[in-house]
């Protein structure tokens, strides 16, 4: 049987490894990468020293330390999703504007150059 901090430590190392690999392979924009590296480090620290959450929980007056980690994680995930949805709305808007400008240009080009109509 593995010690619990070995299990969580291995998980943390995998997560950190995946994030670095994604940055290395240009799958993750450097702008986004910094935030993820911070999170990866936090996962790493908590993973290798799970007792740390007990200590923080006791300082904050939380009776059952694992809930502290879970609550913080859920809040972060929630915020991230909200931001993602907002960003998607913005992108949707940008695509709509680009599409409109494109078809307007197409039409005006067609007006000048009727032969190019397909």
């Amino acid at each position: 049987m593995l010690g619990y901090n070995l299990t969580s430590g291995i998980l943390a190392v995998i997560v950190v490894g995946v994030i670095f690999w994604l940055i290395r392979k240009d799958h993750l924009h450097p702008k986004k990468a910094l935030g993820w590296v911070t999170i990866a480090c936090a996962i790493g620290v908590i993973g290798i020293f799970p007792r740390l959450s007990d200590w923080i929980a006791s300082k904050l007056g939380v009776g059952y330390p694992p809930t502290l980690v879970l609550v913080i994680s859920i809040i972060l995930i929630f915020l991230k999703l909200l931001r993602l949805d907002a960003a998607r709305s913005q992108e949707d808007k940008k695509i709509a504007i680009l599409t409109q400008r494109l078809v307007v240009l197409e039409k005006r080009f067609e007006n000048v150059n009727p032969k190019n109509k397909d």
Partner: peptide, 10 residues
């Protein structure tokens, strides 16, 4: 909006 955009451009 696309139609309005065209109208404006013309």
């Amino acid at each position: 909006q696309t139609g309005i955009r065209y109208a404006k451009s013309e």
